[in-house]
């Protein structure tokens, strides 16, 4: 599925692995939290990049002790209205100091894209039939923010800051 970074489609270096799918010989994989827990040592020993996906009812805390091993944490939006992943992203960055990739997948609409990037999400997985200029445009529509977040530029004060459009290409 297409992956957007800064509003632009990029080549995905991760394979999203179902719980019953065999591990590929090469390449980074994203597994469920359950599989990560069951196969943690093997996944680390594999010596290839690994990431974990969290369902929206799984808090960032679940991964607190594992983050050093993870190249990506993928946050699921089962429905775009389910906003728990916004807090998960923020906790990963602000509370746990996670520096790796955070991606959002599932049902997401362009109108949420800027919120996601402000909270430290790097990449968004978008079904091919939902791609379009709205995604890049969404990062440019609002240039002002009234509260601190994570990837803001041009901080003026607690309540007033300018956002830099994060569109590339």
């Amino acid at each position: 599925m297409p992956v957007l970074d800064h509003g632009r489609e990029i080549e995905d270096r991760w394979t999203d692995l179902a719980d019953d799918a065999a591990l590929p010989a090469e390449g980074g994989v994203i597994v469920s939290l359950e599989r990560w827990r069951a196969e943690r040592d093997a996944l680390i020993a594999r010596g290839q990049p690994v990431g974990v996906r969290l369902k929206s009812n799984q808090l960032a805390t679940e991964l607190a002790d594992d983050l050093a091993h993870l190249g990506v944490v993928a946050l699921e939006f089962p429905k775009f209205r389910d906003g728990r992943a916004f807090s998960a992203a923020r906790e990963l960055r602000e509370r746990f100091g996670y520096k790796g990739e955070i991606r959002a997948f599932g049902h997401i609409i362009p109108d949420q894209y800027q919120f996601l990037t402000r909270l430290g999400v790097n990449t968004v997985v978008v079904p091919a039939d939902r791609l379009g200029p709205a995604w890049a445009h969404a990062l440019t529509e609002i240039s002002i923010a009234y509260q601190p977040a994570l990837q803001d530029h041009g901080t003026v004060s607690l309540l007033r800051r300018h956002l830099k459009p994060e569109v590339q290409g």
Partner: peptide, 16 residues
């Protein structure tokens, strides 16, 4: 007013 500004398009708390 401070709360109005802080809560306006709050990135984390807009899909509560």
């Amino acid at each position: 007013e401070i709360l109005r500004q802080w809560s306006t398009l709050h990135p984390e708390f807009t899909f509560l």
